[in-house]
Design a protein around this nucleic acid. Structure first.
Lengths: 115, 115
DNA sequence: CTAGGCGTTCGAGTGGACTCCAACGCAAGT
DNA sequence: ACTTGCGTTGGAGTCCACTCGAACGCCTAG
C-alpha cells in the first residue's frame, strides 16, 4: 500500500498520536481502513507542504476531540498562508533557475562554437 | 542587512565553505560586497526551495573552480525539476485546504444558524 | 520440527540544519 | 578606566523528523 511514506514512519506516526490506533487483525497486523488511508493521505500532503509534525499533532487532537472547529480552521488557514507564500517563493526561484540555466546554455553553446 | 538568514547562519555558511571567506575590515568585521550579497541571495533562494546544504556546497565548489559548467547545469536542472514537482504538490494541497476550509466554514455557519 | 520471512514493539540512533555558548577584541559613551 | 555593546571564533548543543535495531510472534514451506 503506497501512500508516500515508509512503514517505519507510518508506525511512528501512530506511536506519536498522529494516527488513531489502527485496528489489528486476528494476527496482530494493522488493517488500514478507508478512513485511515484518507487521513494518512491528508497528513502526507500537509507534511510534504511543510507543516510540522507538531502542528499536525495539534490538528489531530482537535479532529479526534470532534470539537475545536474554530481552531482547526485557524490552523488550516495559517497553513494555507504558509503554503501560498512558499508557492510564490518557489515560482520566483523557478524563474531565477530558468535564467541561470539559459545563461549556462548560452555559455556552453558559445564555447562549442569557438571550437 | 536583511537577507533572510540569521547572522549565525551566515557565519556558519562561511565556515562550511558555502561562502568564500568574506573580506574583513580593519577591525576584523565582515564587509559584504555586492557580489557576496548576490551570492547569498541565490543561496537563500535555493535553500528556501529545498535544496540541501550539501548540494549547495557542491554547486559552490563548481562555481569557485570556475569550471564544471555541465555539472552546474545538471545541478540546477535537477533542482528545477524538484521545485516544479513541489509546486504541483503544493498547488494540490492548496486546493485541498481550500475545500476543507470551506467545509469548516459551512459547518460553523450551519451550527450558528441552529442557535 | 525447523527455517525463513514478514510484521510487531519500543528504545535508541542518525542526519540535517541550524543555534548557542564562552571567551575574547575593539570602540564608543560616561 | 570602566562598562556597554556588538562582532569575532570554534566547538558544542539542540531540534526535528525520521530510521534503525533487537527481540519477539505468527504463519507457511520444506
Amino acid at each position: 500500500m503506497k501512500v508516500g511514506i515508509t512503514e517505519h514512519t507510518l508506525r511512528w506516526y501512530e506511536r506519536i498520536g498522529l494516527l488513531d490506533r489502527i485496528e489489528r487483525g486476528a494476527d496482530g497486523r494493522r488493517r488500514f481502513g478507508e478512513r485511515d488511508i484518507e487521513w494518512i493521505l491528508l497528513l502526507v500532503r500537509l507534511r510534504s507542504t511543510g507543516m510540522s509534525v507538531r502542528d499536525m499533532q495539534r490538528y489531530a487532537v482537535l479532529v479526534r476531540s470532534g470539537a475545536g472547529e474554530a481552531e482547526r480552521l485557524a490552523l488550516l488557514e495559517e497553513h494555507r498562508r504558509v503554503v501560498r507564500a512558499a508557492l510564490v517563493a518557489q515560482q520566483e526561484c523557478l524563474d531565477l533557475l530558468d535564467n541561470k540555466i539559459r545563461s549556462y546554455r548560452r555559455a556552453t553553446r558559445a564555447a562549442d562554437e569557438e571550437q
